[in-house]
């Protein structure tokens, strides 16, 4: 199949599967992009995920960089449209009919049932990134440090911890060949 069509198809599928947001769909993204289509290897996936974490706005804009790696700027545009538009249309449609279900007890059931599923999917997302990013004691230390920082120092924007992790990596890991292909 044409590579551009594949990019559009993969990210459209991920879009409608992204129940619970970006982190929830990470394992499936990695499975499709790395293992099935071989567009990226493990290290590239981790790196591009990292790029997505240091830019503002919706945290899955990194899909554009994945598309760019497949077919250049057109791939980036198709990944962007594929990932955001199908889910966006669903939300748009739902928001126009949602009020008709005001007071339906099934709305509560849906929220209560989906909440733990989403938490499970987010945890699986953290595991998927850990499998590519955690290699050696220092990376464990950075992950644990960020976990503690984000959990207990609420006044600091979490992005600073992520940038701090990058700075520590730059200073302490650059002589070790860490992350080299």
């Amino acid at each position: 199949m044409n590579q551009n069509l594949s990019v559009l198809a993969v990210f459209s599928l991920l879009s409608v599967l992204a129940v619970g947001g970006g982190a929830a769909v990470l394992p499936e993204t990695k499975e499709l992009v790395v293992n099935q289509y071989h567009w990226l290897n493990d290290d590239q996936f981790r790196d591009i995920y990292g790029l997505g974490q240091v830019v503002p706005g919706p945290n899955m804009l990194m899909v554009m960089v994945i598309g760019y790696h497949v077919t250049g700027f057109l791939g980036a545009l198709l990944a962007y449209l594929g990932f955001f538009v199908p889910a966006g249309i669903l939300s748009w449609g739902a928001s126009r009919v949602w009020d008709h279900f005001e007071g339906s007890p099934w709305r509560v059931s849906l929220q209560k049932g989906m909440a733990p599923l989403v938490i499970g999917l987010m945890a699986a997302g953290a595991i998927a990134i850990a499998r590519t990013a955690i290699e050696g004691e220092l990376t464990v230390a950075i992950a644990v440090g960020t976990f503690i920082g984000v959990s207990f120092i609420r006044r600091v924007n979490p992005a600073f911890f992520v940038l701090g992790g990058g700075l520590i990596g730059l200073i302490l890991l650059s002589g070790t060949g860490a992350g080299m292909p």
Partner: peptide, 29 residues
């Protein structure tokens, strides 16, 4: 990134960012 993918400094910084992202994702979860 695409034109510096084999730069050791870029790779080291991104390993750090990736590790921190694991911690952040876990904390948010």
């Amino acid at each position: 990134y695409a034109s510096n993918a084999s730069n050791p400094y870029v790779n080291a910084a991104l390993v750090g960012v990736g590790s921190a992202a694991v911690g952040m994702l876990a904390a948010v979860t």
